[in-house]
Design a protein around this nucleic acid. Structure first.
Length: 581
DNA sequence: GCCGTTTTCGGCCCGACTGTTTTCAGTCG
Protein backbone atom coordinates (compact mmCIF):
# COMPACT_ATOMS: atom_id res chain seq x y z
CA UNK A 1 0.00 0.00 0.00
CA UNK A 2 1.43 3.32 -1.03
CA UNK A 3 1.80 6.06 1.52
CA UNK A 4 -1.17 8.45 1.15
CA UNK A 5 1.30 11.23 0.29
CA UNK A 6 2.66 9.20 -2.61
CA UNK A 7 -0.83 8.40 -3.92
CA UNK A 8 -1.63 12.10 -4.10
CA UNK A 9 1.78 12.93 -5.54
CA UNK A 10 1.28 10.40 -8.34
CA UNK A 11 -2.15 11.87 -9.05
CA UNK A 12 -0.79 15.42 -9.34
CA UNK A 13 2.12 14.27 -11.50
CA UNK A 14 -0.43 12.68 -13.81
CA UNK A 15 -2.45 15.88 -13.79
CA UNK A 16 0.67 17.88 -14.70
CA UNK A 17 1.39 15.49 -17.59
CA UNK A 18 -2.19 15.75 -18.82
CA UNK A 19 -2.05 19.55 -18.69
CA UNK A 20 1.13 19.49 -20.81
CA UNK A 21 -0.27 17.04 -23.33
CA UNK A 22 -3.52 18.93 -23.75
CA UNK A 23 -1.57 22.13 -24.33
CA UNK A 24 -2.59 23.71 -21.06
CA UNK A 25 -0.66 26.43 -19.23
CA UNK A 26 2.94 25.21 -18.87
CA UNK A 27 3.34 27.14 -15.63
CA UNK A 28 0.30 25.49 -14.17
CA UNK A 29 1.72 22.09 -15.10
CA UNK A 30 4.96 23.01 -13.34
CA UNK A 31 3.14 24.05 -10.21
CA UNK A 32 1.44 20.66 -9.99
CA UNK A 33 4.76 18.93 -10.48
CA UNK A 34 6.30 20.98 -7.70
CA UNK A 35 3.33 20.31 -5.44
CA UNK A 36 3.61 16.57 -6.15
CA UNK A 37 7.23 16.60 -5.07
CA UNK A 38 6.55 18.66 -1.97
CA UNK A 39 3.72 16.36 -0.89
CA UNK A 40 5.73 13.22 -1.51
CA UNK A 41 8.56 14.55 0.63
CA UNK A 42 6.36 16.00 3.38
CA UNK A 43 6.84 14.39 6.78
CA UNK A 44 3.20 14.33 7.88
CA UNK A 45 0.48 12.08 6.45
CA UNK A 46 -1.57 14.32 4.15
CA UNK A 47 -4.69 12.21 4.54
CA UNK A 48 -4.83 13.39 8.15
CA UNK A 49 -4.52 17.12 7.37
CA UNK A 50 -7.29 19.65 6.78
CA UNK A 51 -7.21 22.29 4.06
CA UNK A 52 -5.48 24.75 6.34
CA UNK A 53 -2.85 22.25 7.40
CA UNK A 54 -2.28 21.22 3.79
CA UNK A 55 -1.48 24.80 2.84
CA UNK A 56 1.49 24.66 5.19
CA UNK A 57 3.14 22.41 2.61
CA UNK A 58 5.38 24.38 0.23
CA UNK A 59 3.87 24.88 -3.23
CA UNK A 60 0.43 23.88 -1.99
CA UNK A 61 -2.08 26.73 -2.11
CA UNK A 62 -5.81 26.85 -1.62
CA UNK A 63 -6.70 25.18 -4.90
CA UNK A 64 -4.35 22.22 -4.52
CA UNK A 65 -5.15 21.79 -0.83
CA UNK A 66 -8.82 21.51 -1.72
CA UNK A 67 -8.05 18.91 -4.36
CA UNK A 68 -6.15 16.84 -1.79
CA UNK A 69 -9.08 17.04 0.59
CA UNK A 70 -11.44 16.15 -2.24
CA UNK A 71 -9.35 13.12 -3.04
CA UNK A 72 -9.51 11.72 0.47
CA UNK A 73 -13.20 12.58 0.83
CA UNK A 74 -14.41 11.13 -2.48
CA UNK A 75 -11.60 8.95 -3.78
CA UNK A 76 -11.00 11.10 -6.84
CA UNK A 77 -10.41 14.64 -8.05
CA UNK A 78 -12.92 15.92 -10.58
CA UNK A 79 -10.46 18.21 -12.37
CA UNK A 80 -8.15 15.24 -13.00
CA UNK A 81 -11.06 13.07 -14.12
CA UNK A 82 -12.11 15.73 -16.62
CA UNK A 83 -8.72 15.74 -18.29
CA UNK A 84 -8.54 11.95 -18.19
CA UNK A 85 -11.79 11.88 -20.13
CA UNK A 86 -10.23 14.02 -22.85
CA UNK A 87 -7.16 11.97 -23.46
CA UNK A 88 -6.62 8.18 -23.35
CA UNK A 89 -4.18 6.94 -20.73
CA UNK A 90 -2.06 5.44 -23.51
CA UNK A 91 -1.17 8.90 -24.82
CA UNK A 92 0.47 9.76 -21.53
CA UNK A 93 2.43 6.52 -21.68
CA UNK A 94 3.77 7.63 -25.08
CA UNK A 95 5.67 10.44 -23.39
CA UNK A 96 7.81 7.83 -21.64
CA UNK A 97 9.45 7.27 -25.03
CA UNK A 98 12.72 9.21 -25.22
CA UNK A 99 12.54 12.07 -27.76
CA UNK A 100 8.74 11.99 -27.66
CA UNK A 101 7.43 14.70 -25.37
CA UNK A 102 3.97 16.01 -24.61
CA UNK A 103 3.71 18.15 -27.75
CA UNK A 104 4.47 15.37 -30.20
CA UNK A 105 2.31 12.91 -28.24
CA UNK A 106 -0.58 15.34 -28.56
CA UNK A 107 -0.05 15.73 -32.31
CA UNK A 108 0.03 11.99 -33.06
CA UNK A 109 -3.12 11.51 -31.01
CA UNK A 110 -5.07 14.41 -32.47
CA UNK A 111 -4.00 13.92 -36.07
CA UNK A 112 -3.78 10.13 -36.27
CA UNK A 113 -5.75 8.93 -33.24
CA UNK A 114 -2.70 7.08 -31.90
CA UNK A 115 -2.92 6.19 -28.21
CA UNK A 116 -0.57 3.23 -27.71
CA UNK A 117 3.03 2.30 -28.37
CA UNK A 118 1.85 -0.48 -30.73
CA UNK A 119 -0.25 1.89 -32.85
CA UNK A 120 2.64 4.32 -32.96
CA UNK A 121 5.05 1.63 -34.14
CA UNK A 122 2.61 0.59 -36.89
CA UNK A 123 2.14 4.19 -38.02
CA UNK A 124 5.89 4.71 -38.27
CA UNK A 125 6.31 1.54 -40.33
CA UNK A 126 3.56 2.86 -42.62
CA UNK A 127 5.49 6.18 -42.83
CA UNK A 128 2.42 8.06 -41.66
CA UNK A 129 4.20 10.30 -39.15
CA UNK A 130 6.51 12.12 -41.55
CA UNK A 131 3.70 14.15 -43.09
CA UNK A 132 2.73 15.73 -39.79
CA UNK A 133 3.92 19.26 -39.15
CA UNK A 134 7.19 19.22 -37.24
CA UNK A 135 7.79 15.56 -38.02
CA UNK A 136 10.06 14.00 -40.62
CA UNK A 137 11.83 10.74 -41.47
CA UNK A 138 14.46 11.38 -38.83
CA UNK A 139 11.78 11.93 -36.19
CA UNK A 140 10.24 8.57 -37.09
CA UNK A 141 13.60 6.90 -36.77
CA UNK A 142 14.31 8.54 -33.40
CA UNK A 143 10.95 7.55 -31.98
CA UNK A 144 11.39 3.97 -33.14
CA UNK A 145 14.79 3.88 -31.48
CA UNK A 146 13.27 5.41 -28.35
CA UNK A 147 10.67 2.65 -28.25
CA UNK A 148 13.43 0.04 -28.45
CA UNK A 149 15.25 1.70 -25.55
CA UNK A 150 12.08 1.87 -23.51
CA UNK A 151 11.34 -1.80 -24.07
CA UNK A 152 14.89 -3.03 -23.47
CA UNK A 153 14.53 -1.98 -19.81
CA UNK A 154 16.28 1.38 -20.08
CA UNK A 155 16.60 0.82 -16.36
CA UNK A 156 18.60 2.78 -13.88
CA UNK A 157 21.75 1.06 -12.69
CA UNK A 158 22.95 0.51 -9.16
CA UNK A 159 25.20 3.08 -7.59
CA UNK A 160 28.33 0.91 -7.44
CA UNK A 161 28.12 -0.14 -11.09
CA UNK A 162 27.72 3.47 -12.19
CA UNK A 163 30.54 4.57 -9.90
CA UNK A 164 32.95 1.98 -11.30
CA UNK A 165 32.24 3.06 -14.86
CA UNK A 166 32.38 6.77 -14.06
CA UNK A 167 35.69 6.48 -12.23
CA UNK A 168 37.10 4.64 -15.23
CA UNK A 169 35.90 7.28 -17.70
CA UNK A 170 37.22 10.11 -15.55
CA UNK A 171 40.61 8.39 -15.34
CA UNK A 172 40.72 7.91 -19.12
CA UNK A 173 39.72 11.47 -19.95
CA UNK A 174 42.06 12.94 -17.36
CA UNK A 175 44.93 11.51 -19.39
CA UNK A 176 43.90 13.39 -22.55
CA UNK A 177 46.28 16.22 -23.42
CA UNK A 178 44.72 19.58 -22.66
CA UNK A 179 42.34 18.24 -20.02
CA UNK A 180 42.66 20.60 -17.08
CA UNK A 181 40.10 19.00 -14.78
CA UNK A 182 37.66 16.13 -15.00
CA UNK A 183 35.10 14.65 -12.62
CA UNK A 184 31.70 13.04 -12.53
CA UNK A 185 28.68 15.11 -11.51
CA UNK A 186 24.92 14.49 -11.65
CA UNK A 187 23.01 12.02 -9.52
CA UNK A 188 26.19 9.99 -9.09
CA UNK A 189 27.89 12.85 -7.26
CA UNK A 190 24.75 13.22 -5.17
CA UNK A 191 25.03 9.48 -4.44
CA UNK A 192 21.48 8.67 -5.36
CA UNK A 193 20.68 5.01 -4.88
CA UNK A 194 20.38 4.38 -8.60
CA UNK A 195 21.70 6.33 -11.55
CA UNK A 196 19.86 6.85 -14.85
CA UNK A 197 22.83 8.28 -16.70
CA UNK A 198 26.35 9.40 -15.92
CA UNK A 199 27.34 13.05 -16.25
CA UNK A 200 31.02 13.74 -16.73
CA UNK A 201 32.40 17.26 -16.66
CA UNK A 202 35.77 18.37 -17.99
CA UNK A 203 37.57 21.70 -18.24
CA UNK A 204 39.75 22.40 -21.26
CA UNK A 205 40.64 25.20 -23.65
CA UNK A 206 39.54 23.13 -26.61
CA UNK A 207 37.07 20.29 -26.44
CA UNK A 208 37.84 18.33 -29.60
CA UNK A 209 40.49 15.96 -28.21
CA UNK A 210 38.30 15.14 -25.20
CA UNK A 211 35.21 14.59 -27.32
CA UNK A 212 37.11 12.29 -29.61
CA UNK A 213 38.65 10.27 -26.78
CA UNK A 214 35.19 10.01 -25.23
CA UNK A 215 33.49 8.63 -28.34
CA UNK A 216 36.35 6.18 -28.81
CA UNK A 217 36.07 4.55 -25.37
CA UNK A 218 35.91 0.78 -25.84
CA UNK A 219 32.44 0.33 -24.37
CA UNK A 220 30.72 2.96 -26.54
CA UNK A 221 27.95 1.38 -28.58
CA UNK A 222 26.33 4.53 -29.96
CA UNK A 223 27.01 8.26 -30.18
CA UNK A 224 23.66 9.85 -29.44
CA UNK A 225 24.63 13.50 -29.86
CA UNK A 226 27.91 15.07 -30.79
CA UNK A 227 28.54 18.77 -30.36
CA UNK A 228 31.33 21.11 -29.44
CA UNK A 229 30.23 21.54 -25.83
CA UNK A 230 28.34 18.33 -25.20
CA UNK A 231 28.57 14.76 -26.42
CA UNK A 232 26.26 11.92 -25.39
CA UNK A 233 27.02 8.25 -25.83
CA UNK A 234 25.40 5.00 -24.87
CA UNK A 235 27.49 2.13 -23.55
CA UNK A 236 27.26 -1.47 -24.69
CA UNK A 237 25.31 -2.14 -21.49
CA UNK A 238 22.80 0.55 -22.44
CA UNK A 239 23.85 3.22 -19.96
CA UNK A 240 23.83 6.82 -21.24
CA UNK A 241 26.87 8.98 -20.51
CA UNK A 242 27.10 12.73 -21.18
CA UNK A 243 30.36 14.62 -21.41
CA UNK A 244 30.29 18.39 -21.04
CA UNK A 245 33.43 20.41 -21.66
CA UNK A 246 33.64 23.94 -20.28
CA UNK A 247 36.39 26.58 -20.00
CA UNK A 248 38.44 26.27 -16.85
CA UNK A 249 37.12 29.62 -15.61
CA UNK A 250 33.56 28.23 -15.57
CA UNK A 251 34.45 25.13 -13.56
CA UNK A 252 32.63 26.00 -10.34
CA UNK A 253 29.44 27.18 -12.00
CA UNK A 254 29.47 24.19 -14.34
CA UNK A 255 30.03 21.70 -11.54
CA UNK A 256 27.25 23.30 -9.52
CA UNK A 257 24.94 23.15 -12.50
CA UNK A 258 25.72 19.60 -13.65
CA UNK A 259 25.52 18.17 -10.15
CA UNK A 260 21.84 19.15 -9.92
CA UNK A 261 19.38 18.07 -8.94
CA UNK A 262 17.13 19.78 -11.41
CA UNK A 263 14.86 20.93 -8.59
CA UNK A 264 17.81 22.29 -6.61
CA UNK A 265 19.08 24.16 -9.67
CA UNK A 266 15.72 25.75 -10.28
CA UNK A 267 15.74 27.02 -6.71
CA UNK A 268 19.27 28.42 -6.97
CA UNK A 269 18.44 30.11 -10.28
CA UNK A 270 15.33 31.62 -8.77
CA UNK A 271 17.45 32.98 -5.94
CA UNK A 272 19.69 34.53 -8.58
CA UNK A 273 16.79 36.09 -10.46
CA UNK A 274 15.51 37.69 -7.25
CA UNK A 275 18.89 39.35 -6.83
CA UNK A 276 18.91 40.65 -10.41
CA UNK A 277 21.43 37.98 -11.33
CA UNK A 278 21.47 35.21 -13.88
CA UNK A 279 22.93 31.79 -13.09
CA UNK A 280 24.00 29.39 -15.80
CA UNK A 281 26.65 26.70 -16.16
CA UNK A 282 29.04 29.47 -17.28
CA UNK A 283 28.75 31.56 -14.17
CA UNK A 284 26.74 33.98 -12.14
CA UNK A 285 26.09 37.16 -14.15
CA UNK A 286 24.58 40.57 -13.64
CA UNK A 287 21.21 40.22 -15.33
CA UNK A 288 21.26 43.71 -16.86
CA UNK A 289 24.85 44.23 -17.93
CA UNK A 290 25.65 40.55 -18.53
CA UNK A 291 28.88 41.06 -16.64
CA UNK A 292 30.25 37.93 -15.02
CA UNK A 293 30.45 38.06 -11.24
CA UNK A 294 31.72 34.61 -10.15
CA UNK A 295 32.21 31.18 -11.73
CA UNK A 296 35.47 29.64 -10.55
CA UNK A 297 34.34 27.52 -7.60
CA UNK A 298 31.05 26.19 -6.30
CA UNK A 299 31.72 28.04 -3.04
CA UNK A 300 31.94 31.35 -4.94
CA UNK A 301 28.61 30.76 -6.64
CA UNK A 302 26.76 29.74 -3.49
CA UNK A 303 28.33 32.53 -1.46
CA UNK A 304 27.21 35.22 -3.91
CA UNK A 305 23.67 33.83 -3.66
CA UNK A 306 23.83 34.16 0.12
CA UNK A 307 24.33 30.45 0.77
CA UNK A 308 27.04 28.33 2.33
CA UNK A 309 28.45 25.57 0.12
CA UNK A 310 25.79 22.85 0.07
CA UNK A 311 26.98 19.22 0.07
CA UNK A 312 25.83 17.46 -3.13
CA UNK A 313 23.90 14.82 -1.17
CA UNK A 314 21.55 17.53 0.12
CA UNK A 315 20.85 19.10 -3.27
CA UNK A 316 17.35 17.71 -3.78
CA UNK A 317 15.24 20.72 -2.85
CA UNK A 318 14.23 19.06 0.39
CA UNK A 319 14.75 22.18 2.46
CA UNK A 320 18.49 22.64 1.97
CA UNK A 321 18.05 26.09 0.40
CA UNK A 322 16.01 27.36 3.36
CA UNK A 323 18.39 25.72 5.83
CA UNK A 324 21.34 27.28 4.05
CA UNK A 325 19.80 30.74 4.05
CA UNK A 326 19.21 30.46 7.81
CA UNK A 327 22.62 28.99 8.54
CA UNK A 328 21.01 25.73 9.63
CA UNK A 329 22.53 23.18 7.30
CA UNK A 330 23.34 19.93 9.14
CA UNK A 331 26.96 19.09 9.82
CA UNK A 332 26.77 15.81 7.89
CA UNK A 333 28.34 12.57 9.04
CA UNK A 334 31.47 11.71 7.02
CA UNK A 335 33.00 8.36 6.22
CA UNK A 336 36.03 9.36 8.29
CA UNK A 337 33.75 9.83 11.32
CA UNK A 338 32.98 6.10 11.43
CA UNK A 339 34.72 4.33 14.26
CA UNK A 340 33.47 0.89 13.36
CA UNK A 341 31.16 -1.45 11.51
CA UNK A 342 28.39 -3.15 13.49
CA UNK A 343 27.01 -5.70 11.03
CA UNK A 344 29.42 -8.10 9.28
CA UNK A 345 29.68 -11.80 8.50
CA UNK A 346 32.37 -14.45 8.35
CA UNK A 347 32.64 -17.87 6.76
CA UNK A 348 31.12 -19.37 9.90
CA UNK A 349 27.81 -18.62 8.15
CA UNK A 350 27.40 -17.17 4.67
CA UNK A 351 30.45 -14.88 4.58
CA UNK A 352 33.39 -15.68 2.34
CA UNK A 353 36.34 -14.84 4.59
CA UNK A 354 37.39 -16.14 7.99
CA UNK A 355 37.11 -13.98 11.08
CA UNK A 356 40.82 -13.20 11.07
CA UNK A 357 40.80 -11.85 7.49
CA UNK A 358 37.70 -9.75 8.08
CA UNK A 359 39.18 -8.26 11.26
CA UNK A 360 42.49 -7.59 9.58
CA UNK A 361 40.78 -5.78 6.69
CA UNK A 362 38.61 -3.81 9.13
CA UNK A 363 41.67 -2.72 11.11
CA UNK A 364 43.25 -1.50 7.88
CA UNK A 365 40.30 0.82 7.52
CA UNK A 366 41.32 2.38 10.82
CA UNK A 367 38.31 1.26 12.84
CA UNK A 368 38.41 1.51 16.62
CA UNK A 369 35.86 -1.30 16.97
CA UNK A 370 34.34 -3.96 14.78
CA UNK A 371 31.43 -6.30 15.35
CA UNK A 372 31.14 -9.85 14.04
CA UNK A 373 27.45 -10.63 13.57
CA UNK A 374 26.95 -13.97 11.87
CA UNK A 375 23.46 -15.38 11.36
CA UNK A 376 21.57 -17.08 14.17
CA UNK A 377 20.18 -20.63 13.84
CA UNK A 378 16.75 -19.70 12.52
CA UNK A 379 18.16 -19.10 9.05
CA UNK A 380 18.65 -22.83 9.15
CA UNK A 381 20.68 -23.16 5.97
CA UNK A 382 23.38 -21.39 7.94
CA UNK A 383 23.69 -24.32 10.38
CA UNK A 384 24.38 -22.14 13.36
CA UNK A 385 24.38 -23.67 16.84
CA UNK A 386 25.04 -22.36 20.33
CA UNK A 387 28.27 -24.37 20.42
CA UNK A 388 29.56 -22.91 17.18
CA UNK A 389 28.81 -19.32 18.06
CA UNK A 390 30.28 -19.74 21.56
CA UNK A 391 33.45 -21.11 19.99
CA UNK A 392 33.51 -18.06 17.73
CA UNK A 393 33.09 -15.84 20.77
CA UNK A 394 36.10 -17.40 22.40
CA UNK A 395 38.18 -16.67 19.32
CA UNK A 396 36.83 -13.11 19.16
CA UNK A 397 37.91 -12.54 22.77
CA UNK A 398 41.38 -13.87 22.01
CA UNK A 399 41.80 -11.58 19.01
CA UNK A 400 40.24 -8.54 20.71
CA UNK A 401 42.67 -5.63 20.65
CA UNK A 402 45.30 -7.43 18.60
CA UNK A 403 44.60 -5.86 15.19
CA UNK A 404 45.80 -2.39 14.33
CA UNK A 405 47.96 -2.15 17.44
CA UNK A 406 50.26 0.83 17.65
CA UNK A 407 52.94 0.53 20.30
CA UNK A 408 51.54 -0.37 23.69
CA UNK A 409 48.02 0.84 22.98
CA UNK A 410 45.41 -1.84 22.52
CA UNK A 411 44.31 -2.24 18.90
CA UNK A 412 40.83 -2.45 17.40
CA UNK A 413 38.16 -3.73 19.79
CA UNK A 414 36.22 -6.73 18.54
CA UNK A 415 32.58 -6.97 19.52
CA UNK A 416 30.83 -10.29 19.42
CA UNK A 417 27.30 -10.09 18.07
CA UNK A 418 24.75 -11.95 16.01
CA UNK A 419 22.28 -11.17 13.26
CA UNK A 420 19.04 -12.58 14.59
CA UNK A 421 16.09 -13.50 12.42
CA UNK A 422 12.80 -11.79 13.24
CA UNK A 423 10.22 -14.55 12.83
CA UNK A 424 6.63 -13.94 11.65
CA UNK A 425 5.50 -13.26 15.22
CA UNK A 426 8.38 -10.95 16.08
CA UNK A 427 10.33 -13.53 18.10
CA UNK A 428 14.04 -14.07 17.56
CA UNK A 429 16.33 -17.12 17.47
CA UNK A 430 17.46 -17.44 21.06
CA UNK A 431 16.01 -16.79 24.53
CA UNK A 432 17.03 -13.71 26.48
CA UNK A 433 19.43 -15.61 28.80
CA UNK A 434 21.53 -16.64 25.84
CA UNK A 435 21.33 -13.25 24.09
CA UNK A 436 22.69 -11.69 27.27
CA UNK A 437 26.14 -13.04 26.37
CA UNK A 438 26.44 -10.97 23.18
CA UNK A 439 27.91 -7.49 22.98
CA UNK A 440 25.19 -6.54 20.52
CA UNK A 441 22.34 -8.03 18.51
CA UNK A 442 21.21 -7.02 15.05
CA UNK A 443 17.74 -8.36 14.18
CA UNK A 444 16.39 -8.53 10.65
CA UNK A 445 13.46 -9.81 8.62
CA UNK A 446 14.53 -12.49 6.12
CA UNK A 447 11.27 -14.15 5.13
CA UNK A 448 7.46 -13.86 5.19
CA UNK A 449 7.62 -10.50 3.44
CA UNK A 450 3.97 -10.65 2.43
CA UNK A 451 2.27 -10.58 5.79
CA UNK A 452 -0.43 -7.97 6.27
CA UNK A 453 0.66 -4.44 7.03
CA UNK A 454 -0.53 -4.78 10.60
CA UNK A 455 1.28 -8.07 11.16
CA UNK A 456 4.53 -6.80 9.67
CA UNK A 457 4.40 -3.66 11.76
CA UNK A 458 3.67 -5.54 15.02
CA UNK A 459 6.39 -8.03 14.17
CA UNK A 460 9.12 -5.41 13.94
CA UNK A 461 7.81 -3.37 16.85
CA UNK A 462 8.01 -6.54 18.98
CA UNK A 463 11.61 -7.02 17.91
CA UNK A 464 12.34 -3.44 18.98
CA UNK A 465 10.78 -4.18 22.36
CA UNK A 466 13.17 -7.10 22.92
CA UNK A 467 15.71 -5.66 25.40
CA UNK A 468 18.54 -7.46 23.62
CA UNK A 469 17.85 -6.22 20.09
CA UNK A 470 20.04 -3.18 19.42
CA UNK A 471 19.76 -2.66 15.69
CA UNK A 472 17.05 -3.48 13.16
CA UNK A 473 19.00 -4.70 10.12
CA UNK A 474 17.98 -3.63 6.57
CA UNK A 475 14.60 -2.51 7.96
CA UNK A 476 12.47 -2.65 4.78
CA UNK A 477 14.27 -5.71 3.29
CA UNK A 478 14.06 -4.26 -0.19
CA UNK A 479 16.46 -5.33 -2.93
CA UNK A 480 16.67 -2.45 -5.37
CA UNK A 481 15.04 -3.36 -8.66
CA UNK A 482 14.16 -6.85 -7.45
CA UNK A 483 12.18 -6.88 -4.24
CA UNK A 484 9.98 -4.04 -3.04
CA UNK A 485 10.12 -2.77 0.54
CA UNK A 486 7.83 -4.59 2.96
CA UNK A 487 4.48 -2.93 3.53
CA UNK A 488 4.79 -1.94 7.17
CA UNK A 489 3.79 1.25 8.99
CA UNK A 490 7.24 2.77 9.12
CA UNK A 491 6.21 5.69 11.29
CA UNK A 492 5.00 3.28 13.96
CA UNK A 493 8.28 1.38 13.75
CA UNK A 494 10.28 4.61 13.93
CA UNK A 495 8.38 5.61 17.05
CA UNK A 496 9.05 2.19 18.59
CA UNK A 497 12.77 2.49 17.85
CA UNK A 498 12.95 5.91 19.46
CA UNK A 499 10.98 4.70 22.50
CA UNK A 500 13.03 1.55 23.08
CA UNK A 501 16.52 2.75 22.21
CA UNK A 502 16.78 0.54 19.14
CA UNK A 503 18.86 1.82 16.23
CA UNK A 504 17.80 1.52 12.61
CA UNK A 505 20.34 0.28 10.16
CA UNK A 506 21.43 2.12 7.08
CA UNK A 507 22.64 -0.95 5.23
CA UNK A 508 25.41 0.11 2.88
CA UNK A 509 25.19 -2.75 0.41
CA UNK A 510 24.49 -1.12 -2.98
CA UNK A 511 21.68 -3.62 -3.68
CA UNK A 512 19.94 -2.59 -0.48
CA UNK A 513 20.70 0.93 0.79
CA UNK A 514 18.09 0.25 3.44
CA UNK A 515 16.82 2.43 5.07
CA UNK A 516 16.68 4.66 2.07
CA UNK A 517 17.19 8.40 2.19
CA UNK A 518 13.56 9.51 2.37
CA UNK A 519 12.76 7.03 5.17
CA UNK A 520 15.82 8.21 7.11
CA UNK A 521 14.53 11.78 6.89
CA UNK A 522 11.24 10.72 8.47
CA UNK A 523 12.81 8.44 11.07
CA UNK A 524 15.11 11.24 12.14
CA UNK A 525 12.10 13.37 13.05
CA UNK A 526 11.11 10.65 15.54
CA UNK A 527 14.49 10.95 17.27
CA UNK A 528 15.77 7.55 16.13
CA UNK A 529 19.49 6.68 16.15
CA UNK A 530 21.10 4.89 13.21
CA UNK A 531 23.89 2.41 12.51
CA UNK A 532 25.56 2.69 9.12
CA UNK A 533 26.76 -0.86 8.43
CA UNK A 534 28.36 -2.65 5.51
CA UNK A 535 26.70 -6.06 6.14
CA UNK A 536 29.95 -7.27 4.56
CA UNK A 537 30.13 -10.88 3.47
CA UNK A 538 33.71 -10.46 2.25
CA UNK A 539 36.63 -8.12 2.90
CA UNK A 540 35.83 -6.23 -0.31
CA UNK A 541 32.34 -5.34 0.94
CA UNK A 542 33.76 -3.36 3.83
CA UNK A 543 34.39 -0.55 1.34
CA UNK A 544 30.68 -0.34 0.49
CA UNK A 545 30.48 1.86 3.56
CA UNK A 546 30.92 4.89 1.26
CA UNK A 547 27.46 4.23 -0.18
CA UNK A 548 25.93 3.79 3.25
CA UNK A 549 27.42 7.06 4.40
CA UNK A 550 26.20 8.73 1.21
CA UNK A 551 22.70 7.47 1.93
CA UNK A 552 22.94 8.69 5.54
CA UNK A 553 24.04 12.09 4.25
CA UNK A 554 21.11 12.16 1.86
CA UNK A 555 18.99 11.58 4.98
CA UNK A 556 20.61 14.65 6.63
CA UNK A 557 22.28 12.59 9.37
CA UNK A 558 24.95 14.09 11.57
CA UNK A 559 27.65 12.32 13.52
CA UNK A 560 25.52 12.40 16.63
CA UNK A 561 22.72 10.49 14.85
CA UNK A 562 24.99 7.57 13.96
CA UNK A 563 25.95 5.27 16.83
CA UNK A 564 29.01 3.82 15.13
CA UNK A 565 30.67 7.22 15.04
CA UNK A 566 30.51 7.35 18.82
CA UNK A 567 33.42 6.56 21.13
CA UNK A 568 33.33 2.98 22.38
CA UNK A 569 32.12 3.85 25.87
CA UNK A 570 29.13 5.80 24.57
CA UNK A 571 28.35 3.02 22.10
CA UNK A 572 28.47 0.36 24.83
CA UNK A 573 26.13 2.41 26.99
CA UNK A 574 23.66 2.56 24.07
CA UNK A 575 23.99 -1.19 23.53
CA UNK A 576 23.01 -1.92 27.15
CA UNK A 577 19.54 -0.67 26.19
CA UNK A 578 16.90 -1.81 28.73
CA UNK A 579 18.91 -4.74 30.01
CA UNK A 580 19.17 -3.40 33.53
CA UNK A 581 22.90 -3.77 33.98
C1' DG B 1 -1.71 27.73 -9.84
C1' DC B 2 1.77 29.52 -6.52
C1' DC B 3 4.27 33.23 -4.59
C1' DG B 4 6.05 37.81 -2.32
C1' DT B 5 13.31 41.74 1.12
C1' DT B 6 10.65 43.83 -6.79
C1' DT B 7 4.28 41.38 -2.40
C1' DT B 8 -2.09 40.78 -4.26
C1' DC B 9 -0.43 40.97 -10.02
C1' DG B 10 3.01 39.64 -13.05
C1' DG B 11 6.26 36.81 -13.14
C1' DC B 12 7.56 31.87 -13.27
C1' DC B 13 15.62 28.76 -14.81
C1' DC B 14 18.70 28.27 -18.55
C1' DG B 15 21.28 26.39 -22.32
C1' DA B 16 22.69 22.47 -25.81
C1' DC B 17 21.39 19.82 -29.48
C1' DT B 18 18.35 18.00 -33.12
C1' DG B 19 15.32 18.13 -36.84
C1' DT B 20 12.52 20.66 -39.02
C1' DT B 21 12.71 24.81 -40.42
C1' DT B 22 13.88 29.48 -43.58
C1' DT B 23 14.07 31.60 -37.94
C1' DC B 24 12.54 28.05 -34.38
C1' DA B 25 9.94 24.46 -31.62
C1' DG B 26 10.55 20.46 -29.04
C1' DT B 27 13.04 17.67 -25.90
C1' DC B 28 16.23 16.96 -22.41
C1' DG B 29 18.68 17.63 -18.24
Amino acid sequence: MARPNDEVAALFQEYADLISITGGDAYKARVYEKAARSISGYHADVSALDVKGLQEIPNVGKSIAEKVAEYFRTGSVSAVDELRAKIPAGVRRLTAIPTLGPKKACVVYEELGISSVEELTDAIHAERLRDLKGFGPKTEENILHGIELLQSSGNRVLLDAAMDLAEDIVAELSRVTGCRRCTYAGSLRRLRETVGDIDVLAAAGSSSALMQAFTELPYVSEVVAHGEKKTSIRTTKGLAVDLRVVPQASWGAALQYFTGSKAHNIRTRELAVHQKLKLSEYGLFDAETGKKIVSRTEQDVYARLGLPWIPPMLREDRGEIEAGLHGELPDLVEETDLKGDLHTHTDLTDGLAPLEEMAEAAAERGYAYYAITDHGPNLYMQQMTKERILAQRERVRELDGTYGKRGKRRGMRLLHGVELNIDPDGDVDWPEEFLDGFDLCVASVHSHFNQTRGALTRRIVRACENPYVNIIGHPTTRIIGKRPPIDADLDEIFAACARTGTALEVNAHPDRLDLRDEDILRARRHGVKFAVDSDAHSTLHLADMRYGVGTAQRGWLTKDDVINTWPETRLRRFLRKGRGR
